[in-house]
Design a protein around this nucleic acid. Structure first.
Lengths: 351, 351
DNA sequence: TTGAAAGCGCTAACAG
DNA sequence: CTGTTAGCGCTTTCAA
């Protein structure tokens, strides 16, 4: 018993111990390349021994030999963002069950940083990638595709590049949400977003514009530069609102903008939804705790994760040899009190 | 130019091209084992060529040969918890700068799952670990230590095991927070926590008990089982509060408990802090957005992360050969409105 | 049905 | 100062 544990067994140690060759063991363990060729007694002897000593092949050696690492690289904008960490968590678990490990990194939506991260991951022979790409990374993405490396893009993508895409219905989500504002009698609806031409952001903007146009209202869009600190963002929004006193509703294109924007609204002594109604894209577990609770377009984390990992696994296993695919998942409007019908608001308790 | 890119160079390709041996190249690239032994011209020739073709050594081969992977394993309770994802993010960035990649996994505070994850990581020759250990994992932790593998425990630890520990002052944080309640005239302060004997939780509990004892108040502790769903937790807290109408303040031992508990308090039509004051351990970016804003004990994420990674790197590099160390970091009480002085509360706007 | 041998790309004794 | 040699542990032709 103790003897069994004294050292780490290699496949050759086992071969010696059992009077078979390493080749045979490898065959047994990997199911054989073409049709099983190992006799039942030998097979059983090997399997039993392997089981008994708890032998696990050295994955590094395996990687070196096969060129496959069974590691997937995941690149998201920010792993501390609940949207991304929620997805990463689900994917990591599923991947683990399938025998894959994951490198998870934050791109911070920065091109240079992402190039660097991709380089590091390629150096380590990562088998496939799940990525929410930052702007400017088209070349690298195209390279991965040309090199025939499994790749799934999610959350946003590059329209000019044939790839596998999992996204949510940004357009439809904001379109319906804006209609919700409109049907609740709001007329001066502003869309506050980031200066970004990434697909998820333009999709949301287009949804807003479409709904506003159909209702023959006047569109008003405020774009904030990327990467401002919280205090500056708040100031900008406060200023913007003070210059546009007619605004009676605001749609924030991201969770983060909503948080900062709501702060700005409160600190301007405006009451939600009485003075200004509010909605956000991307729900947050704390939104139901705000006063008033915040209406938001919720994204299906579980579904996004499932689609990403299963697509990647299919690509990796060679089951799926397609060059492109495009999955668009539905979002859900979580109607809460920050977008209450205009005539109903003004009740106590909304600050 | 094109020729340079046509194939992936191995160290032997370069050797042939440059009429030197692979060994020499290896020496140049790795700085030599003992004192530089390569002549300047050769050295320069190699470095220039390597630079020109963008040669990067195959890290998998390197790992197989050296037994080092330059991968660190990080195990936390839940990567979608902002406390852990915040720390993971900082550590991942720092690690990347130092040439390390990271496997990040959620233990879900489950012993079996953690054993499995550790096994997977060991199979992949992870060099060192940063872990917030779940209960019941003492044996595996001791094994890592016995095998002389770099390991840093954070957030909680095992008192019986000599290890490197980074934690925050759970005791002092709650002690001071409870005193804050007391000095604000609260007399019937309950501590709502989880059924857990992990150090971070007992530390917090002890801080509460100590402060209560010193003030000659009556302690009241409510422990909830681990892993209840949100609705059930809320019901339990609602029930508990209704059976204890004298309670005028509650300290929640975790962020998550606070969120659910505040919901329970509101839905019981109690006003914070007028009927019941509230504090939480572990701050959250959304707490300043609640109405009233929530007083919380904030943990120093940046500091925890820095200490974890630098300790691990020192262990890994052999600079630090100590068997144990124990760093306790200060926490900060973020005083907000949910714990306002008793006589001051009851103002409009607190719901 | 099984085994011998080669080699993935790198490092590190040990010679020269 | 530089090169030869021998593996790290595994997979996979190819031959027996």
């Amino acid at each position: 018993m103790i003897a069994l544990l004294r050292k780490k067994y290699s496949i050759h140690d086992i071969a010696k111990e059992l009077n078979v060759s390493a080749t045979t063991i490898s065959f047994v363990l990997n199911g054989g390349t073409q049709g099983k060729k190992v006799s039942e007694p030998v097979r059983k002897k090997i399997l039993d021994f392997v089981e008994a000593i708890g032998y696990k092949p050295n994955l590094v050696a395996q990687s070196l030999r096969t060129g496959k690492s069974r590691i997937i690289g995941m690149l998201v904008e920010d792993i501390s963002d609940p949207f991304f960490s929620g997805i990463a968590r689900i994917i990591e678990m599923k991947a683990a069950k399938l025998g894959y490990k994951m490198f998870l990194s934050s791109t911070e939506n920065d091109t240079g940083q992402t190039q660097h991260l991709l380089r590091l991951m390629r150096d380590r022979q990562v088998d496939g990638y799940i990525m929410a790409p930052p702007p400017g990374i088209e070349k690298e993405v195209q390279e991965l595709i040309n090199d025939n490396i499994a790749l799934v893009l999610f959350d946003r993508y590059f329209p000019g590049i044939d790839s596998h895409i999992i996204e949510v219905d940004n357009f439809g989500g904001v379109y319906k949400a804006t209609q919700h504002f409109i049907s609740n009698s709001y007329k001066h609806i502003v869309f506050i977003t980031l200066e970004s031409s990434q697909t998820q952001m333009t999709g949301r903007l287009n949804g807003y514009n479409q709904a506003i146009a159909e209702a023959a209202l006047t569109p008003l869009v405020f774009k904030m530069p990327y990467g401002l600190d919280e205090a500056t963002m708040e100031d900008r929004i406060t200023d913007f609102l003070s210059w546009h006193p007619a605004i009676d509703a605001v749609f924030f294109a991201t969770n983060y903008l909503a948080k900062v924007g709501i702060k700005a609204i409160r600190d301007s002594n405006l009451t939600i939804p009485y003075d200004i109604a509010v909605m956000s894209f991307d729900d947050n577990v704390h939104f139901p705790m705000y006063s008033p609770t915040v209406t938001a377009v919720a994204q299906p984390l579980q579904d996004i994760s499932d689609k990403c990992i299963s697509k990647l696994i299919n690509l990796l296993s060679g089951k799926d040899t397609s060059k492109k695919s495009h999955t668009v998942l539905d979002v859900t409007l979580m109607i809460r009190d920050s977008s209450l019908r205009k005539s109903v608001s003004g009740l106590p308790g909304f600050i």
